[in-house]
Amino acid sequence: MRRLRVTLLDLAHATLRDGGEHTRVFDTFTLGLQVRADDGHETYLAVRITGSVPPNLTVLILRNVPGCEAEGWYPEYALPERELLPAEQAWSNLMDPRAAAQMLDEER
């Protein structure tokens, strides 16, 4: 669990810095995060999971993404710059701008 939380924080921090999708490969799946934000507008965060995911892991991931409400996730049928791949799921949520700013201020 700790490894997952650290990974989510690292990925969120990286995508907040450059807006690109950042991923981490685990044994049976790949986890990716990407932030989309415009000045003065909402900050959206997309989570994508590709591969074989152990039971209940998707819920665990979505509940632990920093700066996002656990109940605010919506399934997506595409990512910002591409369609979903086979065996890939994607979710999106609004990210709290204060949490995003705090993560950007932290050195990783």
Score class of each variant (00 low, 15 high):
Asn93Cys: 08
Gln102Ser: 09
Thr58Phe: 01
Thr7Trp: 00
Ala46Leu: 10
Glu106Ser: 07
Tyr77Ser: 13
Gly20Leu: 14
Val35Ser: 09
Pro80Arg: 06
Glu71Gly: 01
Glu106Met: 15
Met103Lys: 02
Val6Thr: 15
Arg63Asn: 12
His22Arg: 04
Glu81Cys: 02
Asp39Phe: 15
Arg5Lys: 13
Thr43Met: 07
Gly20Val: 01
Val47Pro: 00
Val53Ser: 06
Phe29Pro: 00
Arg36His: 10
Glu71Asp: 13
Ala78Val: 02
Val59Ile: 06
Glu76Asp: 13
Leu16Thr: 05
Ala70Pro: 00
Thr15Val: 08
Asn64Ile: 01
Gln102Glu: 10
Leu57Lys: 08
Pro54Gln: 11
Ala99Thr: 12
Asp39Thr: 10
Phe29Leu: 12
Thr43Trp: 00
Ala99Glu: 14
Val6Cys: 01
Thr43Val: 14
Leu11Ile: 09
Leu33Val: 08
Ala46Tyr: 15
Asp18Trp: 05
Cys68Leu: 02
Met103Val: 14
Thr58Tyr: 01
Cys68Ser: 15
Arg98His: 15
Arg5Pro: 00
Arg108Asp: 13
Arg17Val: 08
Pro55Ile: 08
Ala70Asn: 01
Glu83Ile: 07
Glu107Trp: 10
Gly51Tyr: 10
Asp105Glu: 11
Ser52Trp: 06
Pro86Gln: 10
Thr15Leu: 05
Pro55Gly: 08
Arg63Thr: 02
Ala101Trp: 03
Gly72Tyr: 04
Arg24Gly: 00
Tyr74Gly: 01
Asp105Arg: 15
Ala12Ile: 07
Ala99Met: 14
Thr15Lys: 04
Glu106Lys: 15
Leu45Val: 10
